[in-house]
């Protein structure tokens, strides 16, 4: 159970979950869509988690992609897998009853800080520290699973590939908590994150503690990865951080617009992906990523068309004002 983490916070989010159930039930009565039949409340939770992922993944991914850290999501997903293995191991050996998603949050956040620490302490390139943490995380995960193979191997697939039907009420509440923390943090620090992303040296000169904002960014990434892992799976989770952002970059004229467009594209991929996977009986994570990639290809084409149709941009500069 999630009592250790949730407590009063859990209770606070339960009414939100109940409101969501009510909304989708009303929508079912209006549309008759089997996908949102009250008989399948697991889909209600999966859709909620998917929609949350559609906001927080591109929200953080926009900053990561433009810092050329697109693969950090992949590294943290592999360490989150180790976190899941730690949770399953503890439950299997000590019968602690802790949610593997909570141990994944803890391990992924520690891994996120390690990536920054290794880069700062050794002057290594970011991708070197990411590769070290990625490998260590996956190695730790596989070792823990092999130590307790009988009990763990059966359940591990849902974490590797994601599974709509296993999103429990507790996990949906964990996602609502992660969603609130991530959105609130980005809303509060959006100026600073933008400055550090665009021009780290100028941000440092302006007095920003750049190292701290880098740490905040990787920790938020860890939270997104764990939240998205429920339906995307470890292997595909990084795609939601990158693909919608890459599509939005092709068609957006400004940074604020790209944030909005990337969220719209991600939500489109999530809704279409969950719908298609339900009716086709396919894995949701894979379908969502394939839809997202399809949207990306369309965005690239749209961007090229816009570029071709753009007016001549060789206007002279205005004269310099001396007011």
């Amino acid at each position: 159970m999630t009592l250790a983490f949730a407590g009063g916070v859990y209770e606070a989010f339960v009414p939100v979950l109940e409101l969501w159930y009510w909304l989708l039930t009303q929508l079912y009565h209006l549309t008759g869509l089997e996908l949102i039949s009250p008989e399948y409340t697991f889909m209600y939770r999966a859709i909620l988690v998917g929609l949350c992922v559609g906001v927080i993944a591109p929200l953080i991914g926009t900053f990561l992609v433009h810092r050329q850290l697109a693969l950090i999501g992949d590294a943290l997903a592999h360490t989150a897998f180790a976190g899941v293995a730690v949770g399953l191991f503890l439950n299997g050996v000590f019968e602690l009853g802790v949610s593997p998603y909570l141990t994944a949050v803890v391990v992924a956040v520690i891994a996120a800080l390690l990536i920054e620490l290794i880069s700062e302490a050794t002057d290594a390139y970011n991708d070197v520290s990411m590769a070290i943490v990625l490998s260590t995380g996956f190695a730790l995960g596989t070792v823990l699973i092999s130590l307790n193979a009988g009990g763990l191997a059966v359940g591990i697939n849902q974490y590797l590939f994601g599974n709509l039907s296993t999103v429990s009420a507790e996990n949906a509440v964990i996602m609502l908590g992660l969603f609130s923390v991530i959105v609130a943090t980005v809303a509060l620090t959006r100026n600073q994150l933008l400055y550090v992303t665009f021009d780290e040296t100028a941000a440092a000169v302006s007095g920003l503690p750049v190292a701290w904002y880098n740490r905040i960014m990787v920790m938020l990434t860890a939270l997104v990865v764990v939240g998205a892992m429920q339906i995307m799976g470890v292997i595909l989770v990084a795609a939601m951080l990158v693909v919608p952002v890459a599509g939005a970059t092709q068609v957006s004229r400004s940074f604020s617009e790209s944030l909005l467009v990337s969220i719209v594209l991600a939500e489109l991929a999530v809704v279409l992906g969950i719908g298609i996977s339900y009716y086709a009986g396919a894995t949701a994570g894979g379908v969502i990523v394939l839809v997202a990639v399809g949207i990306y290809v369309l965005s690239v084409l749209a961007g090229k068309v816009r570029q071709t149709a753009a007016p001549d941009e060789t206007r002279e500069l205005d004269s310099i004002s001396h007011d």
Binding site: H66, Q68, T197, F198, A248, T249, R253, S254, F255
Partner: peptide, 17 residues
């Protein structure tokens, strides 16, 4: 300055920093 080659950011967004 501005390391990201493809970052979709306008002059006004840069100056507001």
């Amino acid at each position: 300055a501005g390391t990201s080659r493809e970052m979709p950011i306008t002059v006004r967004e840069v100056v507001k920093m």
